[in-house]
Design a protein around this nucleic acid. Sequence first.
DNA 1: CGGGACTTTGAGCAAATTCAACCATTGTGG
DNA 2: CCACAATGGTTGAATTTGCTCAAAGTCCCG
Lengths: 248, 248
Amino acid sequence: MPRLDQFSRCQACAVRSIAVCNVLDNDELERLASITGQHTAANRETIIYEGDPAEHLFNVTRGAIKLYKLLGDGRRQITGFLFPGDFLGLALHDRYAYSAEAIGPTQLCRFPRAKLERLLGELPKLERRLLQTASNELASAQDQMLLLGRKSARERIATFLLTLSARAVRRGVDSEIVDLPMSRSDIGDYLGLTIETVSRTFTILKRDGLIELPEVHRVRLTNRRGLAEIAGLDDEEDFAGSAFAAGY
Amino acid sequence: MPRLDQFSRCQACAVRSIAVCNVLDNDELERLASITGQHTAANRETIIYEGDPAEHLFNVTRGAIKLYKLLGDGRRQITGFLFPGDFLGLALHDRYAYSAEAIGPTQLCRFPRAKLERLLGELPKLERRLLQTASNELASAQDQMLLLGRKSARERIATFLLTLSARAVRRGVDSEIVDLPMSRSDIGDYLGLTIETVSRTFTILKRDGLIELPEVHRVRLTNRRGLAEIAGLDDEEDFAGSAFAAGY
DNA sequence: CGGGACTTTGAGCAAATTCAACCATTGTGG
DNA sequence: CCACAATGGTTGAATTTGCTCAAAGTCCCG
């Protein structure tokens, strides 16, 4: 696909308004587009492998992605989920610090790292934006440490659902019914729980009238305030969506 | 204290070689020095409060600091410890995302955030360096998520000790005997454990000949390889010190 | 020397895990 | 189009790891 096409694609991009490229004017966008390629990943396809040379960075435009780290014996920690508009590859190191796998069919913009880093020197706005993004990720990681280190299973699930909902709002998606594209096992590995505990906890929240589960991969938040109370979120955080609301 | 003095102090600074300022040449350092003040904190003194307007950023020059977040009922998660050379305040948001408290007498360089952000626009090297630092922090946060979500108490303590040791190496301090300036309660709140479990686990590691505890706040790592095996670290990571070795 | 803060150790308990069985959904080949 | 295998999810019982509660030991520091 020729470059000109990529620029048009960028200009028309549905997630441009929330992605890192939203700070660029047309000229700058064109320069970024000139080093941008497209990457498609099928469901369960691995996009990057932990430990591999970090040759590309990405921006998710469609679908969803999980990031994870493994221990020698197969235990897995999912460190985050990415949705359209999210940047993949922060932690600008020579090697990827985690693996990334597509959850459902996924579309990404791909940037060669060397070229992007060179371009950053010429597009200070973009560099500042990445620093901002890294800051947000950092704040979000700290929230997750609090969750993993100190919250009960119930609190973890409640927090998780509210956070997903807030991120959906940010993408302009309805947030009353939250999509859960990931499996129970993914949720468990993200929240530091087992599949069984995740499943049981959903059942309990349903029983207590806080959520409904019309489908396995879809939750209706019937009592946000109740969830927020369980989650131990400050009220502002609730709808602002913690780290992901900040900036831009 | 007048500015000129600060510049001299910067030039002579013992931690300059590992701090963010290490990328600056003399002229640039002088500009940074011109907006730099000194801040001293006594033991247990709070340096920043979660939720307060983020008016200053800091660089630790002496002592140690713990960063933490609280839940409404007092549960606490320590998200990190800072030592000389470390930057305090990343997560460049309008409000601090966590509190910071001195562990022992502490000395810091203090930068007004507004001025520093303005200066970043003129010192691209410094901005790039901060992005690098944020990347390192992010990688380190992901390691911590893996620890909190998936490791046993034994594995957590082993990982903690090796990480502290690696960071000590980086500061040029002997690493066989590791200083633990923080309390058992701090260690527990950092590793997602209780004081009692921390204490018991130290005892077990001692019994198994992996460590010695000549003093309460001092550990001798008598069997690094054994610890690394327990910690589930890749061998390179062991002495490289995970995230904190990367870059600069 | 005494008091307070911190640490260690012990005993019982509980939340979450493990192990096991069952159920639901989906996709495939006959 | 159905049977059925495979995958993923839910539920139950037993177990375990780490927590809570309690008490005793240690180390400062005045």
